[in-house]
Design a protein around this nucleic acid. Structure first.
Lengths: 218, 218, 218, 218
DNA sequence: TATGAATGAGTCTTCATTCAT
DNA sequence: CATGAATGAAGACTCATTCAT
């Protein structure tokens, strides 16, 4: 039974209105951050009365959580594909890169919000939700690394935990780099100004690094 | 000629007072985030008059920038060691990990603030400052990777830009993982609960991955 | 022809629903006070639609008045007994004490609301209702004091008006003392912590005082 | 060391301003009750900025408590006279009536606020303060009743606790009757419409009742 | 008749900034 | 120079009441 952060009233309004509210709210939170975002402004921009807003969401936090949750649901769906796909460890990792990229392209603002959430100041509740997802992917990496070690393709000395950490770091940073302007600039600084628009090159470069890092020496 | 974010008056007060203000401000910004932090509270806690605060810093933003700047100066000093150290690429990378770790341990709160800054919502000016540093390290990686390729130790196919990006991502994420509670939890999820306190193991695991990822096949 | 504060619609609903609304409303008003009480919350808790609420009562005030009225009706019934009982002045006074006690025990929350009403801030209309009752009892005292003076049992110098006032004050304060926590504490301060549960002692002590105060010297 | 409910800043402003704020606040609280009173309105009427208000008082509650406290201090001073006066029990009781009357005439609105405070809904903290005073007077009555019993003037059977309770009830109700319109109406109902302006008659009537109620039979 | 969605003025409170002293 | 009093716009949130369905 899923935890709900919005009130039932939010489900009863027209899809158009619901989406308008979410869109405006996501934009407000992503561009100003949780604290500076204003419910009153969101209400005005979404052409909803303030009282209405509070019928849909008990509090500012509830609205924020609803957004986080919605974003994770979408990401979860996307990850389902990786979980059930065929192929070896590296196929999956590569798929993860492309899915992350796809996700950030479609939902850039949501991704910016996630970066915010990782901030010390945001409520631990938000943190916990946000970690749910990581639990799934970490297990995914672990299992497939072990499996590959069993098959003899990945080096025995490799520590699955530490490598999972590295892999997710690499993927997450690519995602961040496409989500926030700051990280985009940073990526351009390292990988070159022309990296934008050449994502396959970026990913194949990283995959090459990963494969050599993990595969048994030939 | 360095950009200054504080007023000259700030330089004229006693070092003790200056440090007290910085300490209190850093704590306030790191624990509450930029928006929720309050200049009035900082002034009160630092036992400085509000008027004084505004004589030292034109605005809340200026105080924030001063903190960022100060943090980067310290980091810069630390990085100087890596730039001038002897040893090969991998020695330097490893040194970077340890220096980052040392830095985050000594200046945890500053590091939390940097995480905040990478957020979309904080002014692009802050972003620019924060990127200064990355410029230096990216060049460092680039140069040494090329050098190592020249010597024949690192594989020719390796793209120095992309790998620089990967290396810094790995280092930065270790740093984040020790700075913010959120990222600490995440690291434990991937690398195991007992990773805290076993930093050499973590770093040697990552270094092993990096070396295999870059070295020519034996 | 009784003044009605509710709409006719309120009489057409089932007794069960009517009582549920009254019960919830009494609880809300007594625990939060008139201003802080919320019609919307009362509606929700009583499982009545807001629109319904406003069909039964024109306004928050009308609901409040209905409650007051209902409470007085019950008290009135109880007082009927005293009016028609046999016995002398003092029997009646004592009966008043016991009836008040019984009333406050059964309808504690209503009594708390009456305390509220005596407050300057509540509308003068509410005040008028609340005074209806006092008119009856004051006449009761007057008449019986005069009668007793006629019979020679009560001292001639006694001013019936002033003594009525005193008697009702003593009775009302006992009632208040059992209705509100504040007045309970106060009573314990004066009459001793162990007075609760020893109401006969309290009342007989007061009656002794009253009798000596009024009776002709023997 | 007295508990302070206002901020130090409140002591530093001019007496004129301080009194203006108190006067306006007392009027607002007494006429609307705690919940309906608005700090913003108080600020506007007292010609103080909202921010200013909050520099003087941490919260609405703090302002309210400051008022309560101030009222009690004045009452306390007045009661000092009774404590240190010469005369027997009845002289003191009579003095209490006159002091209460004087107090309510000078500080009618404060007295209305006290009536409010005894309401169930107001914070227990306010209640505690408000009970401080009663502690003093209850002891006063107790002691003097016992003393009079020792001297043989007051009947032995009289229970000092219960009688203290009665005495204070009678005094308090006179006070209430001059403080709130509701209680004034009620008093007129019992003691006659012409009782206003004939306070000596009222008090001597009550005193007669009390004396006969307590003195040994002659 | 009955519902409950919608409204928006108004509540308490915070805080960056200014400026008279 | 230095202080800290003063400002008031803005924020999250509540609630009596209306009205379309």
């Amino acid at each position: 039974m899923k935890e709900q952060f919005h009130e039932k009233a939010f489900e009863k309004i027209t899809a158009e209105k619901r989406e308008r509210i979410m869109k405006v709210a996501i934009h407000e939170f992503s561009s100003k951050g949780y604290n500076a975002a204003s419910i009153n402004i969101i209400a005005r921009k979404a052409e909803v009365s303030i009282g209405g807003m509070y019928r849909y969401f008990k509090s500012k936090e509830a609205l924020f959580m609803t957004i986080l949750d919605w974003g994770y649901e979408i990401l979860e769906e996307a990850l389902e594909k990786v979980i059930h796909m065929e192929g070896d460890l590296f196929d999956r990792i590569e798929a993860m890169f492309y899915i992350s990229l796809e996700y950030v392209r479609q939902y850039r603002e949501i991704n910016q919000i996630y970066i915010d959430v990782s901030t010390e100041s945001l409520s631990s509740l938000a943190n916990r939700i946000s970690l749910k997802m990581e639990g799934i992917t970490s297990k995914l990496y672990h299992d497939h690394i072990r499996e590959a070690q069993g098959k003899g393709t990945v080096r025995k000395e490799v520590n699955p935990g530490i490598i999972s950490f590295c892999l997710d770091n690499l993927i997450m940073m690519v995602q961040f780099s496409y989500a926030s302007e700051y990280y985009t600039e940073r990526m351009k600084l390292y990988a070159g100004d022309d990296i934008l628009g050449h994502e396959e090159k970026l990913i194949s470069g990283i995959m090459d690094f990963i494969k050599h890092g993990l595969l048994v020496d030939r």
